[in-house]
């Protein structure tokens, strides 16, 4: 594997509400190589979006980055401030937003919104260069150049999401974060939009972090899959390994709860609820719902340790079984 383009080390984000502190992202570390696609799944409130926003430094109070580094191409994004941060955003790291429906300025033509992003970072480009680039990007995501002259309300949901994808790659950043890029779209359009996203991402060779709930869509779209639970990254593995030989008990339960068209079996779920971030159980956060929980799981929080190439898991039980001689 080539040298990582993104290296996140011990990133912690918390929300301070009143006197209570909720760790929405706790001690998260992972790396991403150029052109790699990483999916992040987890229940609502598991910290996926918090992580994405923190990486772009778009988090708003009461969210706060407590610690950690995120190196992207030799720059620690967590140390950037003011004008440096502004210049870094979009030229190095871009976002395909969750709510494409409302993410475009309603009173500005599409062409202008794309040109705005270019002009904010490429001051030396001529107007013709900017317009040519806008045109090219719209075509790349499968939109007619005429779309540039329209206003957002004149586009369908899928078209708006394509505009957002064109926007995300217009400066050819090293990293694209897609935060539930298809959550508001119907299934057919979802596939097309994801395919478009993959295509342009491959063309520019950017790394992609895709956040979502849909395990099936993830299985087809990403190279590696990470699972978050109660603000912790509990499992990460190449997508094939993840589905064939899941390690973390939570991952195993997630996969077994997926409906399968081949066998008719009753739908299963994971008993219990994700704990409140204000009131985490001691030890492993997952132990009250874990069928394999043992004594150490109730006592100490498991550390995240590598379990193979591109793999890592935070679980005492997995740790034990791997330590045992075969």
């Amino acid at each position: 594997m080539s040298a990582p383009v993104l290296d996140v080390r011990n990133l912690s984000v918390s929300y301070l509400i009143g006197k209570q502190r909720a760790q929405a992202a706790a001690d998260i570390s992972f790396t991403l190589s150029a052109g790699e696609r990483l999916g992040i799944v987890g229940e609502s409130g598991s910290g996926k979006s918090t992580l994405a926003l923190a990486l772009m430094r778009l988090h708003k109070p009461p969210a706060r980055i407590d610690a950690g580094e995120a190196w992207l191409g030799g720059t620690d994004m967590m140390r950037l401030e003011g004008e440096d941060l502004r210049r870094f955003r979009w030229s190095e790291i871009s976002l395909v937003p969750q709510g494409a429906m409302n993410s475009l300025n309603p009173v500005m033509r599409i062409r202008r919104q794309l040109a705005d992003a270019i002009e904010a970072h490429r001051r030396d480009w001529t107007r013709a260069q900017v317009q040519a680039r806008v045109q090219e990007m719209l075509e790349r995501v499968g939109l007619s150049p005429k779309v540039g002259d329209l206003y957002p309300h004149e586009l369908s949901g899928g078209m708006k999401q394509r505009v957002c994808i064109a926007l995300a790659v217009v400066l050819e950043p090293k990293l694209i974060i897609a935060d539930e890029p298809t959550s508001a779209l119907d299934v057919v359009v979802q596939r097309l939009v994801i395919q478009t996203l993959k295509d342009v991402q491959e063309q520019i060779g950017a790394a992609l972090i895709m956040i979502g709930h849909d395990m099936g869509l993830m299985a087809q779209s990403v190279d590696r899959l990470a699972v978050m639970y109660a603000g912790r990254m509990v499992d990460i593995a190449p997508v094939r390994d993840f589905f064939h030989r899941p390690l973390h008990p939570y991952s195993q339960l997630l996969i077994s709860s997926l409906p399968s068209p081949d066998e008719t079996k009753p739908l299963t779920d994971i008993p219990g609820m994700q704990p409140s971030l204000f009131d985490l159980p001691g030890g492993c956060s997952f132990h009250p719902r874990c069928p394999l929980a043992k004594e150490p799981c109730r006592q100490t929080e498991p550390t995240f340790l590598p379990t193979g190439p591109g793999r890592g898991t935070a679980c005492h039980v997995v740790r034990e079984s791997l330590d045992e001689p075969h």
Binding site: M56, L58, R86, R87, F88, R89, W90, S91, S94, L95, P97, Q98, G99, M101, N102, S103, L104, N105, P106, D116, A117, A120, H121, C164, L167
Partner: peptide, 16 residues
């Protein structure tokens, strides 16, 4: 609004 968050993500100048 979401479009303001995206405008900030785009790295536009604050005046813009």
């Amino acid at each position: 609004e979401d479009y303001l968050a995206l405008a900030e993500a785009k790295g536009l100048r604050p005046q813009r």
